[in-house]
Design a binder for these strands. Structure first.
Length: 286
DNA sequence: CCTTGTGTTCTCCG
DNA sequence: CCGGAGAACACAAG
């Protein structure tokens, strides 16, 4: 599941690879989820290029040189953006880096660049989308996102403010709410709560100052570490080179329901909180 | 039936 | 009874 660290990894990778490169062709299948006609996309992109790649929360923002438009890409659960330099077949099959062949049956969109390199948008479940928007629309969309764990705005003061007015919200629901904190998804919320030693089903108005401080520190720590490890490949996620993210080896609760807690060896609880699958330790998290 | 991210709808409380 | 917050529901597809 691409969350902030995964999307940020892809953004940083693609920036180095495709900025300024002229787009020679825009290729698509009829399964592609686009917010305009395919003709519109082709006419718009062929001959054009990307001037910058930004991100807000889990949304990738490809900035066009006209300073009037952006291409928004949301990967949802199974989307991938894979860059490939050329179509050379390496004898014996796979290259030593990429763990995926592209294009494949889940490739719905391709950008072909002037130097022969390509970007492939793959999506098994097809929940992800490409959306061509104006700068004005982007500002409206951006205004709906909460504070970003990787920016200077993510201070203890701003973090504490989030909780100040809240009453009985379930902690996990609050942390997953993109309008409050942007970028956290199911993996990092469970990991953050474990790291802070707090049950994800706690009502936020019952959290003590000490607990809030731990939660703030853990959020920063987990996200920073996950970005350093280039994300978590649990099922489907790959970076722009088709490589897996290595944070998976640091997961302490996500996907480990029924297994032993790494700290206290008791069995981790798997349950549903706020409608989402949740794993936590009854002993280590209070 | 499950999975998760997100947008919408509904309910409840002060 | 109104407004807003929070929770529940709906939807995507395999």
């Amino acid at each position: 599941m691409p969350e902030l660290p995964e999307v940020e990894t892809i953004r940083q990778d693609l920036r180095k690879k495709i900025l300024g490169k002229k787009i020679n062709d825009f290729v698509f299948t009829k399964k592609a989820r686009l917010n305009k006609t395919t003709k519109f996309f082709v006419d718009f992109f062929v001959g054009n290029h990307f001037a910058e790649i930004d991100r807000i929360g889990k949304l990738i923002i490809f900035v066009l040189p006209d300073e009037k438009h952006v291409l928004l890409v949301h990967l949802k659960m199974t989307g991938q953006l894979i860059y490939k330099k050329d179509d050379k077949i390496i004898p014996g099959g796979h290259s030593d880096v990429s763990t995926v062949d592209v294009p494949n049956k889940h490739t719905h969109v391709q950008f072909h660049f002037e130097d022969g390199s390509k970007v492939f948008f793959n999506d098994i479940r097809r929940f992800g989308y490409l959306s061509l928007e104006t700068i004005e629309k982007l500002e409206k969309i951006k205004s709906k996102y909460g504070i970003e764990p990787l920016t200077d705005n993510f201070t203890w003061e701003n973090f504490a403010k989030i909780f100040a007015g809240k009453k009985s919200t379930i902690l996990k629901a609050l942390l997953l709410n993109q309008q409050i904190i942007s970028g956290l998804g199911n993996i990092y919320v469970d990991e953050t709560c474990f790291d802070a030693g707090i049950r994800p089903d706690r009502r936020v108005n019952t959290l003590t100052l000490a607990e809030l401080k731990r939660l703030f520190a853990s959020t920063k720590k987990i996200i920073k570490k996950a970005v350093e490890e280039r994300g978590t490949t649990f099922n489907n996620y790959l970076d722009a080179d088709g490589k897996k993210g290595s944070f998976v080896k640091f997961l302490k609760v996500y996907g480990r329901g029924g297994q032993k807690c790494v700290k206290c060896k008791s069995i981790l609880t798997k349950t549903k909180i706020g409608g989402r699958g949740t794993v936590y330790c009854e002993k280590c998290q209070k």
